[in-house]
Design a protein around this nucleic acid. Structure first.
Lengths: 250, 250
DNA sequence: CGGCGTATTGAGATTCCTCAATTACGGTGG
DNA sequence: CCACCGTAATTGAGGAATCTCAATACGCCG
């Protein structure tokens, strides 16, 4: 019984995500549970996959936070997405042989690797699951587009507010945030790489936010006293996250 | 015969793209040709679809240039992608009901609308075609990631050089550019919205590029005297375009 | 020959950056 | 419980890239 429980536990972020897209049939659910998955426990600040890799498997985040990033030729880093439990940041490697991105852990993480051939097999047998994976990659693309808008057309202050909104909404959707409080173990240097600004500037923006009462922090814990206010400052509209199937407060 | 020829002509960008991903069987080819497609001729500077729409069809660009863009709440525009013949910029609407992006023509365009149910039917009957469409949306996502990197971590000059590289390589891949010359009917204001900078600054960057001989322009015609030089200035590595199947010079 | 959209120019303002300390904090060993 | 260490956060001052706001010039179309 213990092994079965552990399996449910490990697969649950994926099952949960697929199930939120459309209710899984018993058959489909079983097919996902039958996926071979190699669990790995990773320390923080460790690359899971790296640009240029040709992996034969994709992974799912079971617990912990990751970031997806790219580097310029002169060594500047840009984070293009944060990964939370249930995400599969390198699902693209199923179709595209050479990875054009890297994924690193921000915290200790547990991830599950699934061989590509098993995923292919699943997709062929279960068109609806195939559609769900495809859909997930489209949602991911929508988030990249919003990220471009954020970095390209918002100033540092609303840019930071926007990222905080996105993180909070997504964490709520997977049950990792109470209404307006969550744990964000992300350093200012990491925020800087996500926002396309400097660590120093991140620091100043955060100070201003705290001074004005837009957010309150204690360690890595972030509280948002007035959600509507933060949304307004961040010019945040959650449509692009395509979460309508979850009942999360937005 | 005339009608058949016209059909081949209209479908060719799509067939060509799918065929470049993997050689189509006669069956698959015919299935694509059998897709109902409504052709429309559009003027320049016209929205094809708009954020918030719930289209029941997707479109393919048959000729002309488009841009995919988003707006901030205070009316600033960010272009997140350029579309060229063969692209399907709103394929996401097949899975995501509400559009989170807008697509507009930059030049007069011919586009082909395909109803979603026909696409779903095609995907169910032909898993390889489904995979090809999915793959295309992943390539698109890879381009968004690079766009984030470009806007977030490169200064205006290399940022512009990078966009020029991307456009040139993609246009070459569909036969719309000679080796190092192409037609880019994109205004400086449109480049500004793509790069996340000001029209004034685009102008100054382009002047510098011309002064230094990195590019030469005549009307909307752009010539690149030294491709390797432009690539170097733009920190451009075409891996993210995942074009390995085409024989284009990169 | 106008007229209109696009490109160009100039000068002053801003945001954000760079560089270099300095301080705070979480965890560790004594 | 406290001293110590390393990472992360904070601060200050000067500089650079980019913006804003006009104003002017160009080029194509009718």
């Amino acid at each position: 019984m213990h092994a079965a429980f552990e399996k449910e536990f490990h697969y649950s972020p994926l099952i949960r995500k697929l199930d939120s897209i459309f209710p899984l049939s018993a058959d489909e659910r079983q097919a996902v549970l039958d996926l071979p998955m190699q669990i790995a426990a990773l320390k923080e600040d460790q690359d899971i996959v790296r640009e240029g890799d040709r992996p034969g498997r994709s992974f799912q985040i079971l617990s912990g936070l990751t970031c997806t990033y790219k580097m310029t030729g002169d060594g500047k880093r840009q984070i293009v997405a944060f990964g939370i439990p249930g995400d599969m940041p390198d699902i693209q490697s199923l179709h595209l042989k050479v990875l054009d991105l890297s994924v690193a852990t921000l915290t200790p993480c547990s991830v599950g690797f699934v061989p590509h051939d098993a995923l292919w097999d699943l997709c062929l047998r279960h068109p609806r699951l195939c559609a769900a994976f495809w859909r997930e990659s489209l949602v991911e693309a929508a988030a990249f587009r919003e990220w471009v808008l954020n970095v390209g057309r918002r100033e540092a202050y609303p840019r930071m507010a926007h990222i905080l909104c996105e993180l909070l909404v997504r964490l709520r959707a997977v049950g990792l945030a109470e209404d307006h409080v969550c744990d964000l173990p992300i350093t200012q240097a990491e925020f800087a790489d996500a926002l396309g600004i400097t660590t120093v500037h991140v620091n100043r923006v955060l100070q201003q936010m705290r001074r004005e009462g837009l957010i309150a922090t204690k360690g890595s814990r972030v509280a948002v006293p007035d959600w509507e206010w933060l949304k307004a400052e961040g010019d945040f509209d959650p449509t692009y996250l395509h979460l309508q199937h979850s009942g999360a407060v937005q």
